[in-house]
Write a protein that binds this DNA or RNA. Sequence first.
DNA 1: TGGTATTGTTTGTACATACAACAAAAGGTG
DNA 2: CACCTTTTGTTGTATGTACAAACAATACCA
Lengths: 141, 141
Amino acid sequence: MIKELLNECLYFTSNQLAREAGKIAEEEFSSIGLSPTYAFLILVVKVEPNITLSDLCKILHIAPSTGTRFVDKLIQKGLVERHTEGKLAKILLTEKGAILHDEIQKCWDRLYERYSLIFGKEEGDQLTKTVLAASHVLRNN
Amino acid sequence: MIKELLNECLYFTSNQLAREAGKIAEEEFSSIGLSPTYAFLILVVKVEPNITLSDLCKILHIAPSTGTRFVDKLIQKGLVERHTEGKLAKILLTEKGAILHDEIQKCWDRLYERYSLIFGKEEGDQLTKTVLAASHVLRNN
DNA sequence: TGGTATTGTTTGTACATACAACAAAAGGTG
DNA sequence: CACCTTTTGTTGTATGTACAAACAATACCA
């Protein structure tokens, strides 16, 4: 059957996994009204204040244009600020962003627990490692 | 470091994997001017002519609205036809679509070979199985 | 028989994401 | 110093995808 054939395709299966994982992550982060990638962006900026846009994008594995758009939206929500210095755009949290950070951290912890509950902690960790390793292998062709 | 923490998050890693796998798939399918999911849609319709939209969506794991949009675009390209019967929308290939199907099949085979080359056949297959299983586990909570 | 519930599809709208083109600044080489 | 190249960021535009609402056809039930 065609369905089985599709299930042997990594493009197909990895997209499915990402979408399922995404649904759960969105659920967990919905309480703060941000989707997961935005939340992660704030986590990164909290740890690395004054980070440049390009470094931020590298860490989050998003394209620079995507990074600009995300920052724009978070500025609109009053959660981060952009300080342009020469050609560099440095990002940092506003007070409001700093306050929200704690909530985000909690969501993140809950998300991890939820995955652990579903897969079992050991296996969940193993899965994540496997998936990460695979994406690295692909990136380096 | 924050990067390591993100790498322990399944949402994050699975999205990365999907995007990397997607890049390669898009490369392979670019010769026919379709992105992978459209190509898969044609594969499915070839095997299951007169399939209903909803069955198609189930097999491809996309939302019905997405399916409608995809079919619209493929009709525009003259590759599939939609025959509405009562409340059912049945999809089938046009002649042009049928001709393209062979090319798509070849792209698909090449894609599989390419993943196999990168990961090794055994490990590639294993990875795909693991990823599929994980997405199933998530789907059933 | 008529009314309501269910199912299947489409449309409006929105979002995450990317690429290509551009602008602006920085750095290097003559 | 002046020019070219590289780096960094932003904007225009496009794509894949989804959700919710609207719509349409059918099924069920009193």
